[in-house]
């Protein structure tokens, strides 16, 4: 017990508070578009883009940029737009294009890091980028601020376009027939997803981002039956899981990213069970 109290004293340190704040914001953002991505059958876009972000990070590292976020953000946004565009009509079909880009950037990223990096602990660096191990605990004030601003922007965009995103997700043809510029909204979705990925890299690392995007949405869909309740539930669930995961990892000394994902998986199991038991009860 005293040990636990001792551990909770970590909260005094600003870096732990930063981590909690950033963790909550990122978890909130990443769950918002999860529902749309799952329903549009785009679950893997997050995964592909996170690999692109890894490659971009390697390039930024070689260029010895102290703040790599703008470069990574730019490259990821461009890739997101290209991926969603080519998904519509292309010689190489959507999933193949995605696989190509994601594996390609993973390989190139690692290659570049290997060839150019002067770091003594290369595999440690790579591991951190892929699994996010401790990076969330080493954020400085500027990075926290950037994270906060981007997260709030994502949330505002989502709320403003909520009804249009619903219309485009549920029935794109009907939406287009009634004059909604579905292409423009798909573009907005792509850009927002890219921003979320770059943000979430700090929290869970690039290999685990998809989990943050899809698990809360899938869990919420087991139990809730309307778009609004699913969206709200997945946001709340995602925040709770992120908090629980961060606290757990601080106390037990496990890596932040994988602990959060483990909590997400546990929540998914719980919700699946709850959905089975309530079986079609309408909430």
């Amino acid at each position: 017990m005293t040990q636990l109290a001792e551990k909770l004293e970590y909260l005094q340190y600003p870096f732990v508070r930063y981590a909690l704040l950033v963790g909550v914001l990122i978890a909130l953002c990443s769950s918002l578009l999860g529902v749309t991505l799952v329903l549009k059958r785009f679950s893997f876009i997050g995964d592909g883009l996170s690999h692109v972000a890894f490659g971009a990070m390697a390039i930024a590292a070689i260029m010895k940029l102290t703040n790599d976020m703008p470069v990574v953000l730019l490259i990821t946004v461009i890739s997101a737009v290209l991926l969603l565009r080519t998904g519509q009509r292309a010689k190489i079909k959507g999933d193949a294009a995605l696989a190509m880009i994601s594996v390609g950037s993973l390989a190139i990223g690692y290659l570049l890091m290997n060839v150019f990096s002067k770091s003594a602990n290369l595999s440690g660096d790579v591991c951190t980028t892929l699994f996010g191990s401790t990076s969330i605990l080493t954020l400085n004030k500027t990075e926290v601020l950037a994270c906060a601003v981007l997260s709030v922007a994502v949330i505002i965009v989502f709320i403003l376009f909520y009804n249009k995103i619903f219309a485009v997700t549920f029935d794109e043809n009907f939406a287009r027939a009634t004059g909604i510029k579905a292409g423009a909204y798909n573009l907005i979705i792509a850009v927002v997803v890219a921003v979320i990925i770059v943000l979430a890299m700090n929290l869970v690392g690039s290999l685990l981002i998809s989990a943050l995007v899809i698990f809360p949405a899938l869990s919420a869909m087991r139990v809730f039956k309307s778009f609004r309740s699913v969206t709200i539930c997945s946001a709340v669930l995602s925040v709770i899981c992120a908090l629980a995961g961060i606290v757990c990892s601080v106390i037990t000394g496990t890596p932040v990213g994988s602990t959060i994902v483990a909590v997400d998986i546990a929540a998914f199991a719980l919700f699946t069970l709850a959905g089975k038991i309530s079986g079609g009860k309408r909430i």
Binding site: N163, T178, F227
Partner: peptide, 25 residues
């Protein structure tokens, strides 16, 4: 996509009003 879409009847019917919305969110 629609066959397992979590949406209430009300949300879907209301989305038919989008063409009157313009830029109102």
């Amino acid at each position: 996509v629609q066959r397992d879409f979590p949406a209430s009847v009300w949300e879907i019917v209301l989305s038919g009003c989008q063409n009157r919305q313009g830029f109102r969110p």
